[in-house]
Nucleic acid binder design. Sequence first.
DNA 1: TGTTGTGAATCTCTTCACAGCT
DNA 2: AGCTGTGAAGAGATTCACAACA
Lengths: 212, 212
Amino acid sequence: MIDAISEKTVERLSLYRRILEGMAAEGKTSIFSHQLSALTGGTAAQVRQDMRVLGYNGSSANGYDIAQLIESIGLFFRGKGCHKAVLVGIGNLGRALLAYFAGRSPYMEIQAAFDTEPGKTGRVIHGCRCYPVDELVPIIRRETICTAIIAVPDQAAQQTADLLVEGGISGILNFAPTRIHVPAGIYVDNIDLTMSVEKVAYFANKKFKEKE
Amino acid sequence: MIDAISEKTVERLSLYRRILEGMAAEGKTSIFSHQLSALTGGTAAQVRQDMRVLGYNGSSANGYDIAQLIESIGLFFRGKGCHKAVLVGIGNLGRALLAYFAGRSPYMEIQAAFDTEPGKTGRVIHGCRCYPVDELVPIIRRETICTAIIAVPDQAAQQTADLLVEGGISGILNFAPTRIHVPAGIYVDNIDLTMSVEKVAYFANKKFKEKE
DNA sequence: TGTTGTGAATCTCTTCACAGCT
DNA sequence: AGCTGTGAAGAGATTCACAACA
């Protein structure tokens, strides 16, 4: 791993793993690059390039061994780091995310959820314990959690981010449409749902007009 | 519109609009490229390039007129097409999306929601009427809806997509981790939540290790 | 024959640098 | 002085093309 691995590649590796696990469950033991690429919507060359950064080598006779490949990708994601996350904001979206991630990824578990509203805390939602935000910083520190998901209303996003930074988080997935500011050395990714839907609408329109 | 506009640019235009509307609400009337770029996390040059594809010209004295810019971006998204969307899958995520989008984007309105489960249909959730999937195709056709959001469980994603295609949809936003197959001429964008969170976890770990 | 692994070419997006304007 | 608009350079990601191999 001499050069830094691109975000796009990391995304695809995550996707490959899930597809491969599905195939393994079906009893398949090996796969060719063009088969995998057909399932992900990419190209065979791209799959091979991704394998390259993984450092995993296939055979030209049988392609890639599925079990070994899953293990390689697992190793890549597991690294030697932590995989605990917290969620901030237990609104509609927050609760949906808790339900969604309950037991979904082997490399990521939401350990605790937080909200300012007292009615939402002190209970367990989809297997996740909910606390008031006051306890955010101490809990992050005690449990050495390094990833956080922000699902609070727009106005609260920045102050939530500040708290997370104070707690020593290293990565943030931000669902609030506001772009948050954090010091260098902290990774931030934004999922802006409004943007996504407007984008699809734009291209849908474009395709629609092309049809006429 | 001589050359095709990139997805990245469309994403940023959506973001600009929201930021600019916030500024307009605060009474600001004009903005410089470097100010806008600071708010989006981009560069001033990038903002200027985006303005270029928009066809909007600022002045070197006052920068960009906020009201006019909002209008330009609105025109860009509004086009002459439709902005009705449907949602398929009224689970945790689907309901959260209905709540989220209720009155959020002026260029996109979720007109109807669908689910296979009878208990979830026949009522109104967050202002959106819910129907059984049987009515999906006729309703899409009747209302000439061109955008759809898929929030169904993994296994149902492809058959949902098939129905949408049958109904004549032009764009799909797919939240299921499965990559769906559709004929050419239909735009598909995937939001893969597991992937996103694994990506953040990976880079969080990386940053964390770099700190030591 | 069909595959992988890989350097090179290509394509796409971002950033630079500077002329022209106010 | 400081800004915008813009062609060109730079970076980054994808795809091609082909040698080596089973």
